[in-house]
Nucleic acid binder design. Structure first.
Length: 420
DNA sequence: TCTGGGGTCCTAGGACCC
DNA sequence: TCTGGGGTCCTAGGACCC
């Protein structure tokens, strides 16, 4: 049996933990640059704020309904996520952290327990120790656990735990779940399946397997089998190393100037190098891209990218920044209003495989220890305490974040003060 | 003024090899 | 009339996830 633990309206709930005045009120959290709505409390959903709503179009609506608006605060959400996952790990070592707000638990060996009671206990403990409300779905496959979780959120709000085990329980939940709510069935497949008169998860379980294989390929077939109770996905306790790493941002204001673009691209390359070092990998290809704002129809549009093959795979920040700037010089065109830039590294292999190369460059060991020292300083003293000068200092291209809450749990200077 | 960011897997088709 | 058979690797594009 798998349990899927999913935090309710996670970002909105994080904002509420340290700001209890927000309890019971509609609140939304915006994407980077305060662009669109990416999280909503139940109250915000109830007054009709849609997911992805552009903030500037909804200003009046927010005011009218007294919706509290927050910029996203990833330092806070990341730390709260760690706390939730730590609590969950106490209940079983068989845990897969699936995303910032979700974890699968493998409860197969818990045969002597009342699983529903055990999960209710998990839910209460997480709430008690972190302040975050969660819902838990329990079922024989991951896809069914996802479905059970949705069901718990929709129909068993007060209990927050839903178990699917007997044929009757399964049939009832499948019949009452829309096909588009199934994990693995997105917008395109929903349209396609509805056209063929498959409207619920139960309808889908009656579909012909060859037909599903042909039209939704093997991933669709796996989804079908999982819904019918045959597990195709297992618990992944150690996440596999990433095959591609991307750092990109939209700018807070349009950028015309080459120098600012260069600062941003160097910064993105440096972030990619940090992420590579964190998973002990090196990359052999770096791609840099820039583009204008497609929403500004009055502006001339320009999209371009350049791939650079690195002479030796690397995770050294200045080597990646150098390559990124080289690429940027090739694709930069004067006179455009740039809105976004990014760096993607691919051709990722373990650091070990390069170190063992018999043609190893003596610079490699030296650079590696420089990077280790920089990482250590930045980890303890704060991000970018030591950085490449080409990354700049005043960050004119930085994000807009006008309504960011304090980093309650990760910055001494922003700790909550309680006045009695 | 203003519209996010970061991933995965699968398939088809082209280039190339013997 | 008629023109082999069996592979690999890479990339672009489309689907999905959070």
């Amino acid at each position: 049996m798998f349990a899927l633990v999913d935090c309710n309206n996670f970002y909105a709930s994080c904002e509420r933990v340290f700001n209890p005045k927000m309890e019971g009120k509609p609140i939304v959290v915006l994407s980077n640059n305060d662009g669109c709505v990416i999280a909503r409390s139940n109250e915000a959903k109830a007054v009709g704020v849609p997911m992805g709503a552009p903030a500037f179009e909804y200003e009046e609506m927010f005011a009218k309904n007294k919706v509290q608006v927050f910029s996203s605060n990833y330092a806070l959400y990341g730390d709260m996520s760690d706390r939730v996952m730590q609590v969950l790990s106490r209940f079983t070592p068989e845990i897969e952290i699936y995303s910032i707000d979700e974890a699968f638990l493998d409860l197969t060996t818990f045969t002597l327990y009342d699983i529903e009671k055990y999960c209710a206990n998990i839910r209460n403990t997480v709430k008690q120790e972190t302040g975050i409300p969660v819902s838990i779905g329990i079922a024989p496959t991951k896809t069914l656990a996802k479905l059970a979780n949705k069901y718990a959120k929709k129909r068993k709000k007060d209990i927050g735990v839903h178990l699917l085990r007997t044929t009757e329980q399964l049939k009832e939940a499948l019949t009452n779940s829309e096909i588009g709510d199934v994990w693995g069935i997105g917008g395109q497949y929903t349209k396609f399946l509805k056209k063929h008169n498959i409207n619920t998860a139960f309808d889908f379980t009656l579909a012909n397997e060859q037909w599903v294989r042909k039209n939704l390929n093997v991933t669709g077939l796996k989804t079908l089998k999982e819904l019918k109770g045959t597990p195709c996905y297992h618990l992944e306790q150690t996440p596999p190393a990433k095959k591609g790493i991307c750092t990109s941002r939209s700018f807070g204001a349009l950028v015309k100037d080459y120098g600012l673009l260069e600062e941003s691209v160097a910064t993105f390359a440096s972030r990619c190098s940090e992420k590579l070092r964190k998973q002990h990998s090196v990359a052999s290809v770096l791609q840099v891209f820039v583009h204008t704002n497609p929403f500004r129809e009055q502006d001339a549009q320009y999209f371009n990218s350049k791939s650079i093959t690195l002479p030796v795979p690397t995770n050294v920040s200045f080597e990646l920044a150098k390559a990124a700037i080289m690429g940027l010089k090739i694709i930069y065109r004067k006179g455009y209003n740039f809105k976004k830039a990014g760096v993607i590294v691919t051709g990722i292999v373990p650091e070990q495989s390069v170190q063992l190369n018999i043609f190893e460059n003596p610079k490699f060991a030296k650079n590696k220890s420089v990077m280790q020292s920089i990482d250590k300083i930045n980890r303890t003293m704060g991000r970018d305490k030591v950085r490449l000068s080409v990354m700049g200092f005043d960050r004119k291209w930085k994000l807009r974040q006008e309504k960011k809450s304090p980093c309650y749990t990760t910055r001494w200077s922003e700790l909550l003060t309680i006045t009695v």
